[in-house]
Amino acid sequence: MQGSRVHPADVRRQVGAALSTCATPVPETRIQDAQLVATELVTNALLHAGGLDEFQLDVSERHIHLTAVDSSTELPTRQRSLASFDAAVSGGFGWPLICHLAEDTEIRLSGAGKAISVRLPL
């Protein structure tokens, strides 16, 4: 998917559709985790980077790989920890949540921005 017109709901549907076609059934909790991480990646690009340039997903036998590309070179930060969750406070939990659910994260900087990739177990 390309462009800042991508809506988080579109990405959630794309992830769900991709995982529903796997040869081995994927547990619902893993689908939900992947959809949540995809939503956070897209939302973070929209809120903090001025938009999403590209979103990629690749499903292998044991993992789903998600990549969000944006035009900002600003790196995500851990403003809060999941342990300090307070429902009255808005924001700051997306990146810690992504890091908690992902087996691996990678940030690649380029002159045009960054690509954030995550690998999640199925």
Rank of each mutant, 00 (worst) to 15 (best):
R119F: 00
C99R: 15
S60I: 07
L19P: 06
C22M: 10
A87Q: 11
Q32F: 06
E54W: 07
G16L: 01
L120Q: 06
E54L: 10
H63Q: 13
E28V: 11
E40Q: 06
V118F: 04
S71R: 14
G113W: 05
W95I: 07
E106S: 14
L47Q: 14
I98W: 10
T67L: 01
L120Y: 10
T43V: 03
R78M: 11
S71H: 06
A83R: 09
T21C: 09
Q14W: 12
T29H: 15
H65Q: 09
L19Y: 04
R5T: 15
E103A: 08
L47N: 13
G51V: 01
H100Y: 09
E28G: 02
I98T: 09
L36T: 12
V118L: 00
W95N: 03
P27L: 04
E54N: 11
R30A: 14
M1N: 12
A115K: 11
R80S: 03
A83G: 10
I107Q: 03
L101D: 05
A112K: 14
P96Y: 03
A45R: 05
A87L: 07
A17E: 14
L97M: 10
Q56T: 13
E61S: 12
N44I: 04
E61Q: 11
L66H: 08
V6N: 05
L57P: 01
P76L: 02
L97P: 12
H65G: 00
T77R: 11
Q35A: 00
F93W: 15
V42C: 04
L101S: 07
L46H: 05
Q2C: 12
E106I: 03
A17G: 12
S72E: 03
L101M: 09
S84Y: 04
G111C: 05
A23F: 10
D33A: 14
L101Q: 10
A112P: 00
T73D: 10
V69A: 01
L101R: 14
P8G: 02
L36G: 09
I107R: 04
C99P: 03
F93A: 01
S90A: 11
E103K: 14
R108E: 11
V42A: 02
V37N: 05
R13L: 15
V37H: 05
V118I: 03
S81V: 01
S117E: 15
R62P: 00
F55S: 04
G50D: 04
S81Y: 05
A23I: 03
S72P: 03
D10H: 12
C22L: 05
R62W: 11
G51C: 01
V59D: 03
